[in-house]
Design a protein around this nucleic acid. Structure first.
Length: 906
RNA sequence: GCCGGCGUGGCGAAAUGGCAGACGCGCUAGACUCAAAAUCUGGUUCUCGCAAGGGAAUGGGGGUUCAAGUCCCUCCGCCGGCACCA
């Protein structure tokens, strides 16, 4: 154990208590009465109860709230939290009204699985885990406004999650306005008369709807999973096998918003890679649907293609094995082969099936279709490289210009006909998938020959549309969101089921007054033996409403995290999910200069698609319905990098390289821990943990401590508290500052050291470069160590810029400094950020590097006001550069003012 | 395969196109000490040289420029995402 550099163990709890008692970091809403003695009030001095125009500008800085697991925090959590806390404190000092909240994403599988094992109610474990997380987070000194804390499992919270579900349920997406609108305003067509017809009409359009759909069922977890939760045919959580199974499920119509989710990425400041991930996930592709007349069958077969211009090159067709027409069109002599193939495919795991090694399998149906452009008969095959869930589940195969079709055609000896000439004549036409010129594309009614790919696509699509054989279409990889889970520890759906006179089952929303709908008490949290969700065990609860039964599914964990950032704005509001004024103020639509949405959102990349896509979707629905005022929730988003173990490997229990923040805090204190987390490297980079590195920043704090504290009194304090540890806090009060700390006017060099530091730290904070900001402060302290006198006028601003990083340490020295000077101590968190003054950096002489042909040869000290000619002359006369000029012709002399001189010789 | 990001000392890393390696870790020499810890002072990219000083060096190769870690082309490697999406 290293020697203690300074008594952080006494200082840190003291300030944490003080911040809590004084509610130092409470953020005030418009209309809220400001306590007159609060430092925020004292700084911004609005009297009484201000509206949004009187409050200072808002700054909303958000962390991704954690799932409070039983393991507690690891060092990755505080990385993002420290960054946001530094910025929150910085913005407070800059005069913003800062909203910096924290909460708990507490519904979830681990608590439920623990309940199944032990019978202990998830509420109990959840409460316990939250308490532990809160203790750990509090011990790091983060400036959260705890009065706004949310817990997704609190009925006062999930009541509004259920309410938002009802918003989705009661809305539809109007394709004409491209917005969600109330379903009640949807007019029925004239032939839609009976209750049942009208119900079916609406139910088919709701944003939350029920579908009997093939879903991913996980036997081990006893639940279905969303597409996004299945990785390589196994559950993302727990890595259990999953199977496809048709079930009745709640779905959310996120696909209706695909285009807006895509387009609005342009309006927000996220990293390119993150935007790209969202784009890939949505997977928009433009193309056309084309109908092929089946031979010996009245129907037409519809395919989707992004290359309608290659229609003349279509030499066969392929259906997905699951396509509903396979059994209809298969000829008797192919039936056995087709059935065998379908059985074979159904047994393949998803991994085997999507293994894109190139080997293709398939079998002919024996049926034929007619190519509409040239009347040619082309065979219809089935193959598992065509997916049932994308496009129409059927393709026209153009082997000359599609890699997969080419591989398949070669495998089965199908014809390959090039219809696109590559722009580069040396490129082989067969296998060319880019854009070129159409060739061999002339039919009885339409010709594409000589057209560019774009023009050919346009021509053929028009021709198809005119003949009623196809039209332009857009397809997405994005699927609707499977929103129900067969679990206990989640939000129950505010839905009941009834039967109409014909005995048909239908669903109905509970009225808003029925919210929150609490989950029933249970003794046993497992699904029922007949595969019903655990809620089915609560028979009385299920049948509570006469003539109806409750929906037995619960919502997925994503539900609570889709909107928590809105609840923070007004978390104690019992009348609405967020008050209008609070929403407008914090989301920035109340003032022209404010950022629209959350100013900065920091979290890990693991949420790059799921959480961030879902939350954006819900936000847009709420926006359409007039409940929120911005189209996007998170204006700027930054992903913090992963922290690896000190062996450079991902931290994991099995590797034994997990670092527990509690251990680091015990040894070095929270301030050193925070500094190290930021000093390791750029926020977004992946970087390995190194406990010895903590030692370095800890020493830095120790040096500054010794710079300010009187050595004799420090020794005395050490000895007395070693003798009587119980009275250490008392002895600490007797500690004196060094006599070298004075009210003297600083020297020019001291001012320069301070303002160099101020400038660097301020710029770096604006650019989220915490590591280099800390370097700048180390440089300042290294220099200040050499000073005989330490003027308070430079120490005080320095404490202010260090405070966001090491708040407890700075509060302590700030208080002592003011007491030492015999003046009243102002609030540190609300003290105005010290301004950088360029005049303090001006110097009489400058260093001027002299290069010859780009190589450094000398460094001269020159007067700052020297003329260009004088500088060039000085460079040419430079002693150490001289030998490199001998016998050479000076071609030119380049002077970069304030930087260097380069003498070019030949 | 496609998309995105990144390659700089023993390690974490710095460098508006302008002195490569700031700051920190580690190592090392010294001061203090009976001794150790802590602290303080110095050294620490490689290479030639007793030294003064020189040369090389930012994954490899090429280019633009008076000047390139930084910009352009190309190849290699690593990380992340998507992956038979027609």
């Amino acid at each position: 154990m290293a020697r203690r550099q300074y008594p952080f163990h006494l200082i840190e709890p003291r300030w944490q208590d003080q911040w809590e008692a004084g509610q130092s970091f409470r953020a005030f809403n418009p209309g809220e009465l400001l306590p007159p003695d609060h430092p925020f009030t004292q700084r911004h001095a609005p009297v009484g109860s201000p509206g949004p125009t009187i409050l200072p500008p808002k700054y909303y800085i958000l962390d991704m709230f954690p799932y409070p697991s039983g393991d507690g925090l690891h060092v990755g959590h505080p990385e993002g939290y420290t960054a946001t806390d530094i910025l929150a404190r910085y913005r407070r000092a800059r005069g913003f009204n800062v909203l910096h909240p924290m909460g708990w994403d507490a519904f979830g599988l681990p608590a439920e699985q623990y309940a199944i094992k032990t019978g202990q109610h998830p509420r109990v474990t959840t409460t316990r885990n939250i308490a532990n997380f809160k203790r750990q987070i509090r011990s790091l000194g983060f400036s959260y406004d705890w009065s706004r804390e949310v817990d997704t499992t609190d009925p006062g919270y999930f009541r509004w999650t259920q309410w938002i579900f009802l918003c989705l349920y009661q809305s539809w997406f109007n394709p004409l306005t491209q917005r969600a609108e109330p379903i009640s305003a949807l007019t029925f067509p004239s032939d839609c008369i009976t209750d049942a017809q009208q119900r079916a009409f609406r139910d088919a359009r709701r944003l939350a709807y029920v579908a009997e759909a093939p879903v991913w069922w996980c036997e081990a977890l006893g639940t279905v999973l969303a597409n996004e939760e299945v990785v390589d045919g196994r559950s993302e959580v727990g890595n259990h096998p999953v199977v496809r199974k048709p079930m009745r499920q709640w779905m959310l119509r996120i696909t209706a918003y695909a285009d807006r989710l895509l387009e609005d990425l342009a309006t927000i400041e996220w990293s390119d890679s993150l935007k790209e991930m969202q784009r890939n996930w949505i997977g928009r592709s433009e193309g056309a649907e084309v109908d092929f007349q089946l031979l010996d069958h009245p129907d037409r077969l519809r395919v989707f293609t992004t290359r309608p211009d290659t229609l003349f090159g279509a030499t066969y067709m392929v259906l997905a094995p699951e396509h509903r027409w396979v059994s209809v069109i298969t000829t008797p002599d192919q039936r056995a082969a087709v059935e065998a193939y379908r059985t074979h495919v159904a047994q393949k795991s998803d991994r085997e099936r999507t293994d894109a090694t190139g080997a293709k399998t398939g079998v002919s149906t024996g049926a034929f279709a007619v190519n509409p452009v040239n009347g040619e008969r082309i065979p219809i095959w089935i193959a598992d490289y065509v997916l049932a869930t994308y496009g129409t589940g059927a393709i026209m195969a153009v082997p000359a210009h599609d890699e997969r079709d080419l591989a398949f055609a070669r495998q089965f000896g199908l014809p390959i006909r090039p219809v696109v000439r590559p722009p580069d004549p040396t490129t082989e036409a067969i296998g060319f998938c880019g854009e070129g010129t159409a060739i061999e594309s002339c039919g009885p009614e339409v010709s594409l020959d000589g057209l560019t790919t774009a023009a050919a696509q346009h021509r053929i699509t028009e021709w198809l549309a005119a003949r009623g054989l196809g039209q332009k279409t857009v397809n997405y990889k994005l699927r609707d969101w499977l929103f129900s889970r067969q679990r206990y520890w989640g939000e129950p759906f505010p839905i009941v089921w009834r039967r109409d006179a014909d005995g048909t089952l239908y669903h109905e929303a509970l009225p808003e007054e029925a919210l929150p709908l609490l989950p029933p008490a249970l003794e046993e949290y497992k699904p029922t033996p007949d595969g019903q969700p655990p809620l089915a065990r609560a028979e009385a609860w299920v049948a509570e409403i006469p003539g109806a039964t409750r929906e037995l599914n619960t919502m997925p964990q994503w539900a609570g995290s889709c909107w928590y950032y809105l609840r923070y704005l007004d978390s104690r509001n019992a009348d609405t999910f967020v008050g209008r004024d609070a929403e407008a103020y914090w989301m920035g639509t109340g003032a022209a200069s404010a950022t629209p949405g959350v100013d900065l959102y920091v979290g890990g990349t693991e949420h790059a698609v799921l959480h961030l896509l879902y939350a954006r979707f819900w936000h847009k629905v709420l926006f359409d319905l007039g409940h929120v005022s911005t189209a996007e929730p998170f204006f700027k988003l930054v992903n913090q990098g992963l922290i690896l173990g000190d062996d450079g490997q991902k931290m994991s229990k099995s590797r034994g390289n997990v670092v527990n923040p509690d251990d680091i805090l015990k040894e070095y204190g929270a301030d050193a821990f925070r500094l190290y987390e930021m000093f390791m490297g750029p926020l977004s980079e992946t970087k390995p943990w190194n406990t010895q590195g903590v030692e370095g920043v800890y020493r830095f704090l120790g040096r500054f401590w010794r710079l300010m504290v009187d050595e004799t009194s420090e020794t005395e304090f050490e000895q007395r508290s070693a003798a009587e540890p119980g009275r250490a806090a008392e002895f600490l009060a007797d500690l004196r500052l060094s006599a070298a700390v004075t009210g003297d006017e600083p020297t020019a060099a001291q001012w320069k050291a301070l303002h160099t530091c101020l400038r660097k730290v301020t710029e770096d904070l604006d650019g989220l470069r915490f590591n280099t900001a800390i370097s700048a402060m180390m440089i300042f302290v290294n220099e200040a160590m050499t000073w005989e006198r330490k003027p308070a006028a430079v120490l005080q601003p320095f404490l202010q810029v260090l405070a966001p990083f090491a708040p407890h340490f700075c509060e302590e020295l700030w208080e002592r400094l003011h007491r030492h000077l015999g003046v009243e101590t102002p609030s540190l968190p609300y003290a105005p950020w010290p301004a950088f003054d360029p005049a303090r950096l001006v110097e009489d002489t400058l260093e001027l590097p002299v290069q010859v042909n780009g190589k450094l040869r000398d460094v001269l000290r020159v007067p700052a006001n020297a003329t260009a000619d004088a500088l060039k002359a000085a460079a040419l006369a430079a002693e150490k550069a001289g030998p490199f000029l001998v016998g050479k012709t000076i071609l030119k002399v380049i002077l970069v003012p304030g930087r260097l001189v380069n003498i070019v010789v030949g």
